[in-house]
């Protein structure tokens, strides 16, 4: 018998990150620096929100949770388990791009590890999501490379963006003090610490090719809190905006 509370905790974290990052991506719609980038961030928004939806459905159908829409739109801020990285405002394009790179590489590592999960719904979904994420990382890698090689100002902005995001991104791998051991023991996934190290190994070669300096692993102090319901001041306004239409009539049929 699987530990449903532990599974629920893990899936909420993944789903909330996808939903909030999806919402942030969608804020580039109409504002992208070039048309292709406008389309790319809008498409990735659609993918992220679709993946969040699949995870919320899993909570609902396999773990006895609330229906996906009300779970996504009616929860108070403290019940969200999103990371601080995805909550941050889009800022300039360099910040959004670096976050996209670090986040999508992290998701890729996570879904790859779920290929061996003992929890079948996650294993099946990971097959689907993993293939789709290839396009996100292809896009992120290409732009990280191009902008880092596009002159002095461009390079220094990419390095600055990396310096500003790396600790936040490391916070994606905040282990659960309560459920981590059970999830690892039951072979649901290898645990946050293992994923963190795989992620560092994955992003390093891309950053080297872009001549960007990744701080020493020991010098990175991950920004934790999101998984425990402690959030940045940026989440509440986002939730208010995101659920505005839903809250006009929560019983409406679309």
């Amino acid at each position: 018998m699987m530990n449903n509370a532990a599974l629920t905790d893990l899936i909420i974290k993944m789903a909330d990150d996808e939903l909030i990052q999806g919402h942030r991506n969608s804020e580039w719609t109409g504002l992208g620096p070039v048309m292709e980038e406008d389309i790319a961030f809008s498409s990735m928004a659609q993918d992220k929100i679709g993946h969040a939806w699949a995870l919320y459905r899993m909570l609902h159908e396999d773990l006895g949770g609330a229906d996906p829409d009300s779970f996504a739109f009616l929860r108070p801020e403290k019940d969200f388990k999103s990371s601080h990285l995805v909550e941050m405002p889009n800022g300039e394009y360099d910040f959004s791009l670096m976050r996209h790179f670090l986040f999508d590489q992290a998701e890729t590592i996570r879904y790859e590890s779920l290929q061996d999960s003992s929890f079948e719904p996650l294993r099946l979904l990971s097959n689907k999501v993993k293939g789709e994420l290839k396009y996100h990382t292809l896009h992120a890698n290409a732009w990280i490379m191009q902008l880092s090689r596009a002159g002095e100002e461009s390079y220094s902005r990419m390095q600055q963006a990396l310096n500003d995001t790396i600790a936040l991104a490391a916070g994606l791998f905040e282990p659960s003090p309560v459920y981590e051991d059970a999830l690892i023991a039951e072979k649901v996934y290898p645990g946050e610490t293992a994923l963190y190290h795989r992620w560092l190994d994955r992003i390093y070669p891309v950053l080297v090719k872009a001549s960007l300096n990744l701080p020493e692993a020991g010098a990175i102090v991950p920004v934790y809190g999101g998984r425990q319901g402690i959030h940045t001041p940026y989440l509440q306004p986002l939730l208010k905006e995101m659920s505005e239409v839903f809250n006009l009539d929560t019983e409406a049929r679309w």
Binding site: E36, E37, I39, S42, S43, Y135, H139
Partner: peptide, 9 residues
């Protein structure tokens, strides 16, 4: 390849 994202997913 101009962009891996187009008018539909």
């Amino acid at each position: 390849l101009r962009s891996p994202f187009g008018s539909t997913l």
